[in-house]
């Protein structure tokens, strides 16, 4: 981030390399933090034990020198071969201009992760989206409802084994091709 250290006359706090962020996490939380993965500035990440995610995020948010004040994205990925749903947290620090990614694996048949909505209020809707599309239950969430799909939709459509229903309230979900073979 050369040349970006003075914006609007205000001196920014120094950005940390991903390795340094990871080292501080490792020193504090030990085995709950996985190895550092990724090669570029914007894809370096580490796995976190599900039970520790709130603590880790609170540390990242409040600790001096880290100050990740923005959860810029929260998404989920389904890995049926590993029988895992992975929730991905993209964190960003406005004061430091550095970023880091956390990944949490949760079992596919009972995906439960503590909510971050007490820490970042905008996690509320993003967690609702992951719940809606992948069925991850965020424990302690104040209002865990579907956010995109209809309230009475069957299943979670971003799961790899999701089967589209034949019809929805009498509307068939397929259409015959106009191109005749």
């Amino acid at each position: 981030m050369a040349g970006a250290d003075a914006v609007g006359g205000e001196r920014l706090m120094p950005a940390l390399e991903a390795a340094a962020i990871h080292a501080r996490l490792k020193a504090r939380f030990g085995d709950a933090i996985g190895d550092l993965a990724g090669t570029r500035r914007d894809n370096t990440c580490a796995t976190v034990a599900p039970a520790k995610i709130v603590e880790v995020c609170r540390f990242l948010k409040t600790e001096s020198g880290l100050e990740f004040d923005c959860l810029s994205n929260l998404s989920g990925v389904d890995y049926p071969k590993r029988s895992v749903i992975q929730v991905v947290y993209n964190l960003y620090s406005y004061p430091h201009r550095h970023l880091f990614t956390l990944k949490v694996d949760t079992p596919r048949d009972n995906p439960v992760i503590p909510t971050l909505s007490g820490l970042w209020s905008h996690a509320d809707w993003q967690e609702r989206e992951v719940f809606d599309l992948l069925g991850v239950v965020f424990e302690g969430h104040p209002d865990l409802r579907r956010i995109l799909m209809p309230e009475d939709w069957p299943g979670h459509p971003l799961r790899k084994d999701f089967v589209e229903p034949e019809e929805y309230h009498g509307i068939s979900t397929s259409r015959e091709s106009l191109l005749k073979a």
């Binding site: 995109l148 799909m149 459509p157």
Partner: peptide, 13 residues
């Protein structure tokens, strides 16, 4: 058309 959430044509409704 192939998306799970899309109604393929308003003439179905």
């Amino acid at each position: 058309q192939l998306a799970y959430s899309v109604c393929d044509g308003v003439d179905k409704v």
